[in-house]
Design a protein around this nucleic acid. Sequence first.
RNA 1: GUCGGGGUAACACAGUGGCUAUGUGGCGGACUGCAGAUCCGCAUACGGGAGUUCAAUUCUCCCUCCCGACCCCA
Length: 349
Amino acid sequence: MGPIIEMVGEIIDKGFGYVTEDGSVYFSVDKVKDYGRLTKQKIEDMESSGRVALDEQKRNPMDFAIWKAAKPGEVSWGSPWGPGRPGWHIECSAMIRKYLGDEIDIHGGGNDLIFPHHENEILQTEAVTGKPLSKYWMHNGMLQVQGEKMSKSLGNFFRVRDVSQKFDQYTIRFYFLNTHYASPLLYSEDLLAEAGTSLERLTNNYTDLKAYVKQGPSGDGDVCGMTDEYRSNFMAAMNDDFNTRAAIEVMFQLARATNKSMSEGTLSKDGAAKFVKLLEEFNGILGIFPEDTGGDDAALDSVMQILIDLRAELRKRKAYDLSDLIRDRLGDAGIRLEDAGDGVKWKKI
RNA sequence: GUCGGGGUAACACAGUGGCUAUGUGGCGGACUGCAGAUCCGCAUACGGGAGUUCAAUUCUCCCUCCCGACCCCA
């Protein structure tokens, strides 16, 4: 509260704010030019029906409260202008200034907050500092439920707590990254489930590559010679205003190409290692792979190898009931076995 | 009404003045004892109209539909 009150005082001192009879403080929009630069529109051109406030105390109907005098019975804090509470926008301006400085690099937020919230934040901060509040503004699209934005007031929202009961964090994150941040995003469980299936394709590829590093043929490292190209395509997508969707497409392309070269045996273990490293680089940015996808525990590896060899022997003898029993019991234990043309794969599920 | 963001195949979501989008799903193959994974192939596109161009889904204009902002709340 201290820094907020302090900032309100500074705004008044610099001549951008004024105190009204009831002890409120308003920001005078007439004192600034280019109000509405984020909205890309002159504020006075926006629909004004009903806005011309019956609010008596404002000098200009567009002026907004930076300190609101308390009405009897309201929660309030003491201030030089009497008991009251902060205006809606001022706490953001004050917090940013106190904890991040006069100027920040990126200011994010939903695109429904552009006007008036962010516009007003700019006015307040710049009135005091004389510097641009933020170098970049990132406004994300709305999460939609059945064609409407998800919002508290509409009551059509879901809590992360509840959604994460049904879908793991990686699936949820992958789903969000599947759309450009500025575009609206549909919420539905079907789509989340679909995202889970898609992501599995990517994590399968990642674990397969890790396994291949141990058993693939040796040879010159980057047989495909493609890691650099994938990396630069991925980075180009991310550099293009965080086009995560395009970046993910690169990962799918990589998956298809390496799945193929692994099954054909044309990928060397060194090449696979390079791809693993590249995927880990990508994952460091997107964070979509679960921590433990298996294959990193040497002791478990050797135990698994025993079971896999044993099962192979049983299959050779056509003792399918026993070989299937091993697979089923491992499944119960959370490990999935898959017979591929080029060997047996296993992973934790 | 003003402004912003959109309308891409069954669904989701990228992108480009001419060249295979991608994923899920569907269909058909390969592999396979079964299951699964994986690979190959096929089908369904760029809201409508006009214009610019040798060529437009991609550029321009108009129209239309959807979401959001402009009143309250934060």
